[in-house]
Design a protein around this nucleic acid. Structure first.
Length: 270
DNA sequence: CGCTGACCCTGACGGC
DNA sequence: TGCCGTCAGGGTCAGC
């Protein structure tokens, strides 16, 4: 389940194989995604050269000499480089065939992802209202403090809201709140500035660390070159409800906040 | 405007 | 063994 580190890992994996390469053709075997793939997409992209592979939030942007391809991996998606003669397996829905003889292959069993064209110099509506990147200098504890005033929602729900900050999904929200010593169900508007500074720092440290390790593989995520990320043993709380806290050994509490599994330590998080 | 819950989808897993 | 219900999850949208 790709979160920001997985998407960034994918970007770094595919960029060297894509940048400067021409799209020979696109093969679309399935169009039913979160938003349908437009019928004219292969025709639109054929012959364009990929200039740069960028990331915004969990979206990948393949900038070309024509349209930009906006791609989201959803929950189960992956984008990897395959040899041209590699036969498609189940759920290998889209191939972007490059002039190197290889192809960028979009695999997405649950089809929560998307692949959409964006005209040059346009910003897709999906990207307009996004909050700052968590690893940018715009994302600070002071910013979180300001944005959270008068908000009654749980701090974890607040942290996962893409209008506030992008790319912090369920796994990393749980982990960052543990690292910062903040209870996930505490109302966002009632948390002091100093604690938000700790939280912003924790988000940055955890995301950077996960990127340096190639993302968190929980089930079957693979990066751009097909290499799995590190497994989940470094996670302090996520998926460990009922097990002892790694810091104080008391049993971790598991509950649901906004439909999401939430795990925390009653003693270490206040 | 803020917040909650439904929804999209398939694979994994547990119970019987 | 095999069937079936439940869960997982990001992000958008409808409704209050």
């Amino acid at each position: 389940m790709p979160e920001l580190p997985e998407v960034e890992t994918t970007r770094r994996g595919i960029a060297p194989h894509c940048e400067g390469r021409c799209i020979e053709r696109m093969i679309v075997r399935e169009t039913r995604f979160r938003w349908p793939v437009p019928k004219q997409l292969p025709k639109l992209m054929r012959g364009q050269t990929i200039i740069k592979v960028e990331r915004r939030a969990k979206y990948l942007l393949l900038k070309t000499t024509g349209n930009t391809l906006l791609c989201h991996l959803g929950m189960s998606g992956s984008l990897r480089i395959v040899d041209g003669d590699c036969p498609p397996a189940a759920h290998d829905h889209i191939d972007i065939v490059l002039d190197t003889g290889r192809a960028l292959r979009f695999h997405d069993p649950r089809r929560f992802g998307c692949m959409l064209p964006v005209k040059p110099d346009e910003t897709h509506p999906l990207l307009v209202k996004l909050g700052p990147e968590p690893l940018s200098e715009d994302f600070t504890g002071d910013y979180l403090f300001q944005a959270s005033r008068k908000r009654k929602t749980a701090v974890k729900t607040f942290l996962m809201d893409g209008h506030i900050v992008v790319g912090v999904g369920n796994i990393y929200a749980n982990e960052a709140l543990f690292a910062a010593g903040i209870r996930p169900d505490r109302p966002a508007g009632k948390i002091a500035k100093a604690r938000y500074r700790r939280l912003a720092e924790a988000v940055k440290v955890i995301l950077s660390h996960a990127i340096s390790r190639g993302g968190t593989t929980l089930r079957d995520f693979v990066g751009g070159e097909g290499k799995p990320g590190y497994f989940s043993q470094e996670l302090a709380v996520y998926g460990r409800g009922g097990q002892p806290c790694k810091q104080c050994r008391s049993a971790l509490i598991e509950l649901r906040l906004g439909q999401r599994a939430t795990v925390y330590c009653r003693r270490c998080q206040r």
